[in-house]
Design a protein around this nucleic acid. Sequence first.
RNA 1: GCGCCUGUAGCUCAGUGGAUUAGAGCAUCUGACUACGGAUCAGAAGGCCGGGGGUUCGAAUCCUCUCAGGCGCUCCA
Length: 569
Amino acid sequence: MDEIKSEISKIIKNAIQDAINANELPITTPPDIPFSPTKTPDHGDIATPIALGLAKSAKMPPRTIAEIIHKYVNLEKHAIISDLEIAGPGFINIYLSNEWFYDTIRNIIAERQDYGKSNIGSKKKIQIEFVSANPTGPLNIVSGRAAAVGDTLVNLLNAVGYDAVREFYVNDAGGQVERLGQSIDIRYRQTLGENNLEIPEGGYNGEYITKFAKEIVADDSDTHLKLLDDERISLFKEKGIAHLLGQQKNTLDRFGVNFDVWSSEQAIRDSGKPDEIINIFREKNYLYDNEGATWFKMTDFGDDKDCVVIRSNSEYTYFVPDAAYHLDKHDRGFTKVIDLLGPDHQGHITRLKNFVKALGLPDDWLEIDIIQQVNLVDSEGNRQDMSKRQGQFYTLDLLIDELAESVGERYAVDVARYFFLMRANNTHLDFNIELAVTQANENPVFYIQYAHARCCSIFQQAREQQYRIKPVEEVNLELLGEPEEHALIRKAADFPSVILSSAEDREVHRIPHFLHELAGLFHPYYNLHRVLDSSNTDRSYARLILVDCIQTVLANGLNLLGISAPESM
RNA sequence: GCGCCUGUAGCUCAGUGGAUUAGAGCAUCUGACUACGGAUCAGAAGGCCGGGGGUUCGAAUCCUCUCAGGCGCUCCA
């Protein structure tokens, strides 16, 4: 569809140029030609509002301009356009030739599982960091959304020719995991009978901590009590991180998300890179000391306040290892890095970007996109706060479990992924668990999957009815003359540009919507027209090719979303 | 107070650089041929696109003000 646009763009530009040369249009040069998608077949295959755009500079009514342009397009010279018409206030509606439709079909069949891909990315190395949940508890549904979106974004970027990788940053150092160790320690000692102990401020109250502490007691009984407090907490911290991280990995694995790289904050700290960062900043005179702490001149970068990088207790604030981590990403050769963060990290964005700038990296090297929150809502519509520290949250595992009870294990992940992927990143998602589970059967993913299964079923029937596999060259595509067939192919032709725009704009949800629309054209077609018709086998062969195309696009699209394309349901 | 996000049908959401008649799904109502799978299809109903003002021949879309909700502005991460 993109090629067709640039070709038609050229034709119309030439027509405008000819009109200018003939003194019929009082403008100097032909502008770029915009296209608008057509909502109904009555508006042709594509349309351009160019005449409306020129109305002002040409000081002429748009319809008149459209008529002039129309006059200078030589339809007989351009085989890809079958007809032009002027509509409404001055739109030029363009009808594409049948030959173009046949080419599209042949193209889909030829490219098969690669249909939709492109090479725009020229194999540039891009890294997407997402989820990066603290290893202090199970993954919740917020991480689930991030996981689904990030995973799909990487698929999309790879599909358009980038070399994109998934990375998870493990915050296995600093105050949070320190308090994790302390929390496990309290539960451990409580399990062994100590009273009057309380989880410290900012510690973790979740049931899973108690459960894990009991496991430690079961394995090692009270042997750890012999250790000094600090040693024991440190040990429990290590054990806790390993345990919870392992759990997170299992959940992600179940959810179909496989990270290429797991980076450790502790490793970054141990590497000495944070010290390098500080030295670089000091040399560049970005730092100063005040009240016993070391501050970074964030105001030099336009922020409204400076921020502490080394606390008065001489520990780094989290900015330092984080900046070091990003420098490390750069050293690993990524030409671009995208961080997907939650909205609670809003304040972090400008600062992190400023740190990266201070390190001398280009402005657009680091892109930070916010994936909006997921709120838990009860059946009365009241929000419920999720907090790992307070032990209130809804885990991704539980979601998949409950969905599995409703739609079966086979589709639970598909339903969950689709649920997250169908929303734009910036929607604030109110998640009603009860509703999500009871309505799981209504999830639109089934509509798409069913369309795919239907295609497979038709081929199954075809085999039973002794149809043979005919290569597309032997099939008379001219027998595909129904308007519904026309619409299906035109839709399928959009697939590559939908992938491209979806990847470039980081708007993953366009893929589910596109697939839903495609399925929405296929089901009515199926009901209206028989594919396999023994009284017209030539046409049946042509329609089988069409079904093959639709199945291919559906499968390719679902594959990008990490959702299964079942052959039967 | 400042910054970011959101507000579209009863509900959940689409709406690509303004543009031909604002669209789906769910829910509601009415229908579907002994035919390739009824997880489907055909149809009905449902809207001052939060509100005011502005730019434009034309605004859900751009600008401005305003209302409502969420999030962020820590020597927490």
